[in-house]
Amino acid sequence: MSEANEGMDVGYVAKLANIDLTTEETALFQGQLNQVLHYVEQLNELDVGGVEPTAHAFPVYNVLRKDEVGTSLNHADVVANAPAATDGEIRVPKILDQ
């Protein structure tokens, strides 16, 4: 976890997370989160060689659903929830090609 010592670039990570931060927020979070990262470095004390990671508390397998059509939402409710809609479609600012 040596990278952690350098601290994170809050501005860059906030962009990844698509949250615009003010300069003040960036500075505040930078300090607070570096403290948290410093704290979690204590995990380095542990030797986890050969330890399996836990992704699920109780892994069960093959939780499957039959391929049978169920009920969809009422179209009007979907449109009513959307901040902007045109002709039943959800309107967003022009998507630029990625």
């Binding site: 391929d67 049978e68 059509v69 169920g70 009920t71 969809s72 179209h75 039943g88 479609e89």
Partner: peptide, 27 residues
């Protein structure tokens, strides 16, 4: 070629009216 979507029971139908085969999962 499935009747329904990968993770919800909404129907897959090409050319249906927009946003008529949607549910909390796929939205």
């Amino acid at each position: 070629k499935t009747n329904t979507k990968m993770f919800c029971a909404c129907k897959y139908e090409y050319g249906a009216e927009p946003n008529t085969h949607v549910c909390p999962v796929c939205l």
